[in-house]
């Protein structure tokens, strides 16, 4: 039986990713344990040395690093990912509850950023060197130079505290609503599916500010790469020939020039996903969002090692998966790359 080249490529990539992730888990785990902070001391600062030794023994912290790592990996493969000292639950359980919250934020944030960034870059490329282009560049630099935590606080101050346009910026849903039954874990979608439109609307209103902060962070890199890549592809012979054949400007610009620019744009989008996952920690803290970012921050500040290691592993898996999807999308975008797989 012959395996199709694209499938073989995917399988090879997954195998490589698995090895990389294993390495990352080892580094993340040992890093967590080599840090000078101690989970027992940070939790109970006032206990005697004997009590501390006893607690460390109970938690298994007195074992050699390798044994602890082996025990952690065992728990990883069991789907538990260790136990959080903070929540008392298995980390897997904690994350299952928090991942949808972060994903809902990240997905809408990236959608918003893409929907703004790509058209802005396209307009700048088409109007290159003219006033519109210069204006957009200034806007871009302004957006880029604003730190997310500061923007978050300003937006809360203006849109919530002063204008009351948005509800209290705490969490995914105001306490008067109860979460909709689980469908995919996005409250907006779950609410719609369950027919609870008031819940979906309330969830959407809670999302406005954090999504705005996260999404604006995506706008600049995407606008910049789109402008550069489109600027180049608009000068390609196939664009000029398309015009020479009397094809409409929409067909030439959106069909050919944009597609010609799409590979670098998608590559940047891949980087951006990593940035968004990192940025989520700050945004979730500012907006008390019950996602993995805030979970990780809490775990780090309390030296709760299993959640820290697992969060690093989770983000790394997310980035690896994104990179694979980005690579595969090249083949969809450009037939020259698609036909390269067989070779």
């Amino acid at each position: 039986m012959r395996i199709p080249p694209v499938l073989a490529y995917v399988l090879r990539r997954i195998a490589i990713s698995a090895v990389v992730l294993l390495g990352i888990s080892a580094v993340a785990f040992s890093m967590a344990y080599l840090l000078p902070s101690d989970p027992v001391t940070s939790r109970y600062p006032d206990i005697t040395n004997e009590q501390r030794a006893e607690m460390r023994r109970q938690m298994g912290l007195d074992q050699p690093l390798l044994v602890q790592y082996a025990r952690y990996m065992q728990s990883v493969f069991a789907g538990e990912f260790g136990r959080s000292l903070g929540t008392g639950n298995s980390v897997g359980e904690d994350l299952a509850r928090r991942i949808p919250a972060t994903l809902e934020l990240a997905v809408y944030g990236i959608l918003l950023g893409t929907a703004l960034g790509i058209p802005l870059g396209m307009v700048a490329a088409i109007r290159r060197g003219r006033p519109t282009d210069h204006l957009l560049r200034v806007v871009n630099i302004a957006i880029q130079s604003v730190p997310a935590f500061w923007l978050g606080i300003v937006l809360i101050f203006v849109l919530f505290y002063q204008l009351r346009w948005v509800p209290t910026p705490v969490g995914r849903l105001s306490p008067i609503h109860s979460p909709p039954p689980f469908f995919i874990g996005f409250y907006t979608i779950d609410g719609l599916v369950a027919g609870k439109f008031d819940v979906a609307l309330a969830a959407a209103r809670q999302l406005i500010l954090p999504v705005l902060v996260l999404g604006l962070g995506v706008v600049s890199p995407l606008a910049r790469i789109t402008r550069a890549a489109m600027g180049e592809s608009l000068g390609e012979d196939y664009v000029i020939f398309g015009r020479a054949l009397g094809l409409g400007e929409r067909q030439v610009v959106l069909g050919d020039a944009f597609r010609g620019a799409l590979v670098p744009i998608v590559t940047t989008l891949g980087f951006v996903v990593g940035n968004v996952l990192a940025g989520a920690a700050i945004v979730e803290t500012v907006f008390s969002w019950p996602g993995i970012g805030r979970y990780a921050v809490t775990a780090i500040t309390t030296s709760d090692m299993a959640p820290v290691s697992t969060c690093i592993l989770l983000v790394a898996s997310g980035v690896a998966l994104t990179n694979l999807l980005v690579d595969l999308s090249y083949a969809l975008i450009d037939p020259r790359i698609r036909h390269g797989y067989g070779k």
Partner: peptide, 15 residues
Amino acid sequence: VSLLFQNAKGALSPF
């Protein structure tokens, strides 16, 4: 009016 270019491979849409 129509045109032909020097580099025909580049003039055709690669997609």
